[in-house]
């Protein structure tokens, strides 16, 4: 079998196909989130008769979930570095922690969305609301996909299939995970912290 063949075969650039593909994909994702963020910025003042961003954002709450996501990046690198040392036990532990922190973040987002809806900000309330839910929803879907990948890694580890030599796979999932975190760093500042219009 040749499952690790791609990393063992020298390529022109000396880097593996998989990792390069992930980076090209992340470059592409910059344009995706850029478009969503710009759309949001364009409409942050267009809250029509509904709540304005400044009325409704709960900065302390979002700060906590931002912190949670940020720390999940730390646990992700720790998972990778454990695997690279051949420390399967800690690798599993950190993978699980990362997935749980991600789930905590998603839980926070679900809570945020429901409380917004209760306060009168539905998806169709205004251009602002549509843009807000679309942007943060897309980010949330990215985090959720990341959780699925982390869980798959964990399961294959439990089945004894995630060894030191597979660390590149973990690294690639990690790249995706950190990227999603980095996007949130941007969203947190530009969408939440920069002073928002109120109605």
């Amino acid at each position: 079998m040749s499952e690790a063949a791609t990393t063992e075969h020298p390529t022109n650039t000396g880097i593996s196909h998989n990792k390069l593909a992930m980076w090209v994909f992340l470059g592409s994702e910059c344009l995706l989130f850029g478009a969503l963020i710009s759309t949001y910025l364009l409409y942050r003042n267009e809250f029509h008769t509904g709540p304005a961003p400044g009325d409704i954002f709960d900065i302390p709450f979002t700060s906590v979930s931002s912190f949670v996501l940020l720390m999940s990046s730390l646990t992700m690198v720790l998972a990778l570095s454990a695997l690279k040392r051949g420390d399967i036990r800690n690798n599993r532990l950190w993978l699980l922690t990362t997935a749980l922190l991600g789930a905590l973040f998603i839980g926070g987002q679900v809570y945020e969305f429901t409380s917004f809806v209760r306060e009168g900000l539905g998806f169709t309330t205004s251009p602002f609301s549509s843009a807000f839910f679309t942007l943060t929803g897309f980010h949330g879907i990215h985090v959720s996909l990341g959780i699925v990948m982390l869980m798959s890694l964990l399961i294959s580890s439990l089945r004894g299939n995630l060894k030191e030599k597979n660390s590149e796979t973990v690294e690639i999932v990690g790249l995706y995970w950190h990227f999603v975190d980095v996007v949130w760093i941007f969203i947190f500042t530009v969408i939440y912290l920069v002073p928002n219009p109120t109605s």
């Binding site: 690198v77 950190h178 990227f179 941007f186």
Partner: peptide
């Protein structure tokens, strides 16, 4: 923050 995550964690 962006820079640190990208350069160290990634």
């Amino acid at each position: 923050k962006f820079f640190y995550v990208a350069s160290w964690f990634m």
